Simulated assay, not measured.
Amino acid sequence: MLVDAHAHLLPRDYPEDAPECFPRMEAIDGDTARMLLFGAVRFRARDVFFEAERRLEAQDASGVDMEVLTPMPPLLRYDLPAADGLSLARHVNEFTATLCAHDPLRFTGFGMVPLQDPDAAAAELSAMKDAGLRGVEIASNIAGSSIGEEKFLGFFAEAERLDFPIFVHAMPSPTDRLPASAMGTYVVGLEGALAAASLITGGTAAKCPDLRISFSHAAGGFPLMVPRHQYFWSGVWNEETPVPERAVAHDDGPSPMDYARRFYYDTMVFDARALRYLVDLLGPDRLLVGSDFPAMPREEPAGKTLRSLGLPEDTLADITWHNAFRFLGIDPPR
């Protein structure tokens, strides 16, 4: 069995009386695709984004048994007025629930919230869960603010209370450090790393120990950065024990590596060597298959590189599907 825990959808349409700031999906002559128009975004969305039967055909073609569907990241617009952001989230969430109801064994949906208003975002989680959604997707930064900032702690605490998992998708933030051409490559890697690190250094991971949270693209450069944090916590290389007296900033709580191994990470890192490192450093119980489909093409078949590593069968089963159900907090199908 294989669960794709990082796949995206787009609603087919938006209300005719929607606010001016809402997205639009325009028909394309002679094509089943539609054009997403949202601010500066111009994106041709194939029908597999919004047609359930086309998604099922694509799953079967790639050897995927179930998808965890999250809104296409450009919909996570935290610059909108909070009331409009809430209206947009509710429309997208309703569409997601409807699409997933077409085949609940093959589709599991995550919604979105207006995190520009953390209180409103937290209040919306219960309604999303009642509507059958299984979790919530957020961006790696909220209009440039770190997700580890204190003002977002109530949102994470409410998700933990509701046993509602969170998927963090790397998204660019305002920057002049890299050219625009790097937005889909290096900036995404940096953003994932900053998001994961901020939850540890900002205290959210400590204050929400039972929160289930996953990161797109293995949280970018974070897995290479956390051993340095571990060294500054313990003062030793290679996680040696016992912790010596010369620890730089040691405390009696969990180590940075302990926190990192509470998170989940999708395996869309494009290289078998990187996958081996993730398995070794973070553990095979922390990894999920992800593809970014249909924004990006899947490997054919899905999980091809993962299966090339020669992992034990039980380890491979953890990564391809057991971990996904643990992250979701639901029992796998018989």
Score class of each variant (00 low, 15 high):
residue 25 M to V: 11
residue 205 A to W: 08
residue 52 A to W: 10
residue 23 P to R: 10
residue 178 L to F: 13
residue 73 P to G: 09
residue 316 L to A: 11
residue 301 P to E: 03
residue 70 T to G: 04
residue 49 F to I: 09
residue 93 N to T: 09
residue 64 V to H: 06
residue 157 A to K: 10
residue 277 Y to V: 11
residue 75 L to N: 06
residue 193 A to V: 01
residue 210 D to K: 10
residue 46 R to M: 14
residue 313 E to Q: 15
residue 90 R to P: 02
residue 58 A to M: 13
residue 329 G to P: 04
residue 98 T to M: 08
residue 299 E to M: 05
residue 200 I to V: 13
residue 190 L to W: 05
residue 129 K to A: 15
residue 321 W to E: 13
residue 205 A to S: 09
residue 29 D to C: 14
residue 281 L to A: 14
residue 163 D to K: 12
residue 63 G to R: 10
residue 283 G to Y: 12
residue 126 S to P: 03
residue 235 G to A: 03
residue 334 R to F: 01
residue 29 D to Q: 15
residue 212 R to L: 06
residue 142 I to A: 02
residue 176 D to T: 15
residue 113 V to I: 07
residue 69 L to D: 14
residue 211 L to Q: 00
residue 228 R to F: 05
residue 197 A to P: 04
residue 202 G to W: 03
residue 130 D to F: 00
residue 217 H to K: 09
residue 62 S to M: 11
residue 254 P to Y: 06
residue 71 P to T: 10
residue 115 L to K: 05
residue 62 S to G: 07
residue 128 M to N: 09
residue 112 M to V: 08
residue 126 S to C: 05
residue 305 T to C: 02
residue 159 A to I: 08
residue 45 A to L: 07
residue 256 P to F: 02
residue 31 D to N: 15
residue 259 Y to D: 00
residue 94 E to Y: 04
residue 13 D to G: 04
residue 244 P to C: 05
residue 198 S to C: 08
residue 235 G to L: 01
residue 286 R to P: 13
residue 75 L to V: 08
residue 226 V to R: 01
residue 167 F to D: 01
residue 167 F to P: 00
residue 90 R to K: 11
residue 186 Y to V: 14
residue 261 R to Q: 12
residue 203 G to Y: 08
residue 4 D to F: 03
residue 59 Q to T: 10
residue 93 N to G: 03
residue 294 P to N: 06
residue 274 A to C: 05
